[in-house]
């Protein structure tokens, strides 16, 4: 489904600020894989996400989706089949437009936008049905401007908007990090449901090790622009946070920067 081959990126090459953001990244996701990525700040998680979404072009390497080379495709073209939820709850929705208009924009993601009404009666029904699955009562507020919603509601809406055209790849970029614990738990729950129901191929970045263990069937640990540890299936299920920390120490010969990551 998603194939990353030998991806390397260096920022500010040849200057004192030179930084190897990614070095020889190889990652292969099969259809339906749900991979969580952990790592401290500067490990290259966001750079990796941006490379997949098309925000950044790698210096070398290939990005293949369904066997198709997309590495030179700009972001807006890739986003026809890649969905992304950002960390900032404000980033995924348009505040001065209504809920139904936001959904209509998301609905047009994998089609060519045309000169026809974005919100039709038929679509409204569908939007309402999909909003009901969030259990937030948003289905009764189709005409409310999104700017009036709370951060949690907006993030739930972003998640729905990103997933309801069934993208080939779903990118979740620390999408619960900016929410309070109960809202974060709600979004995590919704994520689990949506991914399970639609069998989406998902890549999730998180700072929360417990979350990384709870969700998904594969886990990837990154450090200094490299993938240093991978675990999947049964082996992942038995893992605890302490095991991850020990693993990091064994590989790197140093303590995990625990002050930078949420352990619990």
């Amino acid at each position: 489904m998603l194939d990353l081959k030998d991806i390397s990126i260096t920022f500010n090459e040849g200057t004192p600020d030179e930084k190897k953001a990614l070095t020889d990244i190889n990652l292969n996701l099969k259809k339906g894989d749900f991979v969580t990525i952990i790592g401290s700040n500067g490990a290259g998680k966001s750079t990796l996400m941006n490379t997949i979404s098309g925000n950044l072009y790698p210096d070398v390497g290939d990005v293949l989706i369904n066997g198709r080379q997309v590495v030179h495709l700009p972001e807006y073209k890739r986003s026809a089949f890649i969905g992304r939820v950002f960390q900032d709850p404000m980033a995924g929705t348009a505040p001065s437009m209504t809920i139904e208009e936001n959904l209509a924009m998301a609905y047009a993601r994998n089609k060519k936008r045309k000169l026809v009404f974005g919100v039709t009666k038929k679509r409204k029904e569908m939007f309402r049905d999909r909003l009901k699955t969030l259990n937030l009562g948003l289905e009764n507020r189709l005409n409310a401007k999104v700017g009036f919603l709370s951060g949690g509601e907006r993030q739930a809406l972003s998640l729905l908007m990103t997933t309801f055209t069934d993208p080939d790849i779903l990118l979740l970029d620390e999408h619960t990090a900016a929410l309070d614990p109960s809202r974060a738990a709600l979004i995590t729950e919704l994520t689990k449901e949506v991914v399970a129901n639609s069998g989406l191929t998902t890549l999730m970045v998180t700072h929360n090790m417990q979350q990384a263990l709870d969700l998904g069937n594969r886990l990837v640990m990154m450090d200094k622009g490299q993938i240093i540890f991978e675990v999947s299936g049964k082996a992942k299920r038995g893992l605890r946070v302490e095991d991850l920390l020990r693993e990091f120490q064994r590989i790197r010969g140093e303590q995990f920067e625990s002050d930078r990551a949420v352990l619990g």
């Binding site: 972001e75 969905g83 992304r84 404000m90 980033a91 348009a94 505040p95 437009m97 208009e101 045309k114």
Partner: peptide
Amino acid sequence: KTEIGLALRAIGDNKRMIRSLSANT
């Protein structure tokens, strides 16, 4: 109010979002 028009309005409202929804901003 059309699909194109909604995308146009989103440019002034949240450019990053509409780009991530496959609109050529």
